[in-house]
């Protein structure tokens, strides 16, 4: 673990936390700004991690896109998360680093409508192209939960002062703009 928490050293992060693997199935959790995603993916690949899956979660603050990584030789799971805004959900593609991300990103677009800029073949994957704009896993405003209420916060190792998505004592009832302010 001492080594793992230094995995993203030198990269611009929003949040870094150690998680209890036995309970959450995750060892390290990192929220990264969109601009750091590709660099984080490169770091993970260089360290031998493979991509397990990419999935989005519709929260009050936006779409929380989770990238799960595991290692063939070492135990543990690294979760990298990035937030895509509801009004313009766009993140950079990591398919140039992890070829397998191409399909996962297309699936996230099918289900949640998050656009991955730079994906080499960004067409619908699982949904019929004729009905690919229905985004079945988007939630309506009434059912959306705040990210901090449902997602694992872990034991924070680093929090960027302006980042309040996971801060447990942040004032309740704020919208995305207030949370970011």
């Amino acid at each position: 673990m001492a080594e793992l928490k230094n995995l993203f050293d030198g990269l611009s992060l929003d949040y870094l936390a150690a998680c209890d693997y036995a309970k959450t199935g995750q060892s390290l959790l990192a929220f990264v700004p969109a601009g750091t995603l590709v660099a984080a993916a490169k770091r993970l690949l260089a360290d031998g991690w493979h991509l397990e899956d990419i999935g989005a979660l519709d929260c009050v603050e936006g779409y929380v896109v989770s990238y799960h990584f595991a290692h063939y030789e070492r135990p543990g799971r690294v979760t990298v998360r990035a937030l895509a805004a509801h009004d313009k959900p766009e993140l950079p593609s990591i398919a140039g680093v992890y070829g397998g991300a191409e399909w996962h990103e297309r699936e996230v677009r099918d289900f949640h409508g998050v656009v991955f800029a730079g994906n080499p073949n960004f067409v619908p994957l699982l949904l019929d192209p004729d009905m690919a704009e229905c985004f079945p896993l988007r939630k309506d405003e009434k059912t959306r939960m705040k990210a901090r209420e449902i997602l694992e916060a872990g034991e924070a190792l680093f929090v960027r002062p302006s980042f309040t998505l996971m801060t447990p004592d942040a004032p309740a009832g704020g919208d995305a703009a207030a949370a970011k302010a």
């Binding site: 959450t24 899956d53 989770s66 449902i150 694992e152």
Partner: peptide, 29 residues
């Protein structure tokens, strides 16, 4: 309420389930 990731070894490889619950009747994700 909460989230977890659990994986098992299936015949074709690693099967993973990322479960997120808001504590409601149905699962959140």
């Amino acid at each position: 309420k909460g989230e977890t990731y659990f994986a098992v070894e299936g015949g074709r490889g690693k099967i993973g389930v990322h479960l997120v619950s808001d504590g409601g009747k149905n699962m959140y994700r």
